[in-house]
Amino acid sequence: MADPYFFGYGSLVNLATHDFPDPRPAKLKGWRRSWRHTDLRPVAFLTAIPDPDCEIEGMIAHVPKNDWAALDEREWAYDRIPATQAVSHTLTHDVDIAVYAVPHGRHTEPTNHHPLVLSYIDVVVQGYLRAYGEAGADRFFATTDGWEAPILNDRAEPRYPRHQQLKPHETEFVDSRLRRLSVNVVHSP
């Protein structure tokens, strides 16, 4: 029987946000990331959307005790989708890999009432910086849609439950890339 693994493309790339076993870099072909909103959450979040011309980097990890329950709980707003054939990785044994994504039709564009939150962006980019370096973090920005959405600067009071403290150079990297994208950053009232 194949070992169950998941492919993470957002906060799951940041190993400080979880302790799932055997994490390692991987690539998912035929998908890209997008900042989206669903009625299931008050703020926008990342989801994977099919894109036959794209490949995204991320992290695979073993599903603890071969039981999807804890991961399904963490990723409760998403559906778990089989993705074994679309993932390239360094494992040499038989695995079944899934990716979490919100199905088309169950998400919408972020809005002023449902913005991106900077504490979430920080966590994701910190993960890419640590796993893939600056070039990999730049590829994260390039293979993610939705940067035209408003971004709430919540660093002083993070809304993202698994927020992390960034090192000064990590904060500067995030801020510089957001400036390049000319995003609309708003501050908490």
Score class of each variant (00 low, 15 high):
residue 112 N to S: 02
residue 76 W to L: 10
residue 25 P to K: 12
residue 155 R to Q: 14
residue 160 Y to H: 02
residue 27 K to R: 15
residue 63 V to L: 05
residue 107 H to V: 06
residue 89 H to P: 01
residue 169 H to G: 01
residue 51 D to T: 04
residue 99 V to S: 13
residue 160 Y to G: 00
residue 128 Y to N: 03
residue 43 V to N: 15
residue 159 R to A: 09
residue 77 A to R: 02
residue 62 H to Q: 15
residue 29 K to D: 13
residue 61 A to Y: 12
residue 116 L to Y: 07
residue 108 T to E: 09
residue 15 L to H: 10
residue 38 T to Y: 00
residue 186 V to W: 08
residue 185 V to E: 13
residue 69 A to H: 12
residue 189 P to C: 01
residue 35 W to H: 06
residue 183 V to T: 13
residue 136 G to L: 08
residue 62 H to V: 00
residue 168 P to M: 03
residue 109 E to V: 11
residue 134 E to P: 07
residue 94 D to A: 08
residue 97 I to T: 00
residue 63 V to G: 08
residue 178 L to G: 10
residue 66 N to D: 04
residue 136 G to N: 11
residue 78 Y to Q: 12
residue 157 E to V: 07
residue 58 G to S: 08
residue 168 P to Y: 04
residue 31 W to D: 00
residue 104 H to A: 13
residue 185 V to Q: 14
residue 9 Y to S: 03
residue 152 L to P: 02
residue 153 N to S: 11
residue 8 G to E: 01
residue 47 T to M: 09
residue 41 R to L: 10
residue 148 E to I: 07
residue 138 D to L: 12
residue 158 P to I: 00
residue 39 D to K: 07
residue 175 D to Y: 07
residue 180 R to L: 07
residue 115 P to K: 12
residue 27 K to C: 08
residue 101 A to Y: 01
residue 83 A to D: 10
residue 98 A to W: 01
residue 75 E to I: 14
residue 134 E to A: 14
residue 15 L to C: 12
residue 83 A to P: 00
residue 79 D to W: 11
residue 171 T to C: 13
residue 42 P to L: 10
residue 174 V to M: 11
residue 27 K to E: 10
residue 115 P to D: 14
residue 161 P to G: 11
residue 144 T to E: 04
residue 29 K to V: 08
residue 42 P to T: 03
residue 181 L to R: 15
residue 188 S to V: 08
residue 70 A to H: 06
residue 120 Y to R: 07
residue 5 Y to E: 00
residue 116 L to T: 01
residue 172 E to L: 10
residue 8 G to Y: 08
residue 24 R to I: 08
residue 110 P to D: 15
residue 41 R to C: 03
residue 102 V to F: 04
residue 37 H to P: 01
residue 114 H to R: 12
residue 122 D to Y: 05
residue 33 R to V: 02
residue 101 A to W: 05
residue 129 L to C: 09
residue 144 T to A: 03
residue 33 R to C: 05
residue 26 A to E: 05
residue 7 F to Y: 07
residue 163 H to T: 11
residue 55 E to W: 09
residue 89 H to R: 04
residue 61 A to Q: 05
residue 183 V to A: 06
residue 21 P to T: 04
residue 44 A to K: 04
residue 177 R to Y: 06
residue 50 P to C: 04
residue 27 K to M: 10
residue 56 I to A: 02
residue 71 L to M: 15
residue 24 R to E: 07
residue 102 V to H: 05
residue 108 T to W: 07
residue 69 A to K: 13
residue 90 T to S: 14
residue 72 D to Y: 11
residue 47 T to Y: 15
residue 171 T to V: 15
residue 141 F to A: 02
residue 109 E to D: 06
residue 93 H to C: 02
residue 181 L to Q: 15
residue 41 R to K: 13
residue 165 Q to E: 13
residue 36 R to G: 06
residue 155 R to C: 02
residue 63 V to F: 13
residue 28 L to Y: 06
residue 47 T to L: 12
residue 98 A to F: 11
residue 72 D to I: 01
residue 126 Q to S: 13
residue 99 V to E: 05
residue 152 L to R: 15
residue 116 L to S: 09
residue 49 I to K: 14
residue 81 I to N: 09
residue 38 T to C: 04
residue 176 S to C: 10
residue 100 Y to R: 03
residue 41 R to M: 00
residue 149 A to N: 06
residue 152 L to D: 03
residue 96 D to Y: 03
residue 123 V to W: 00
residue 1 M to Y: 10
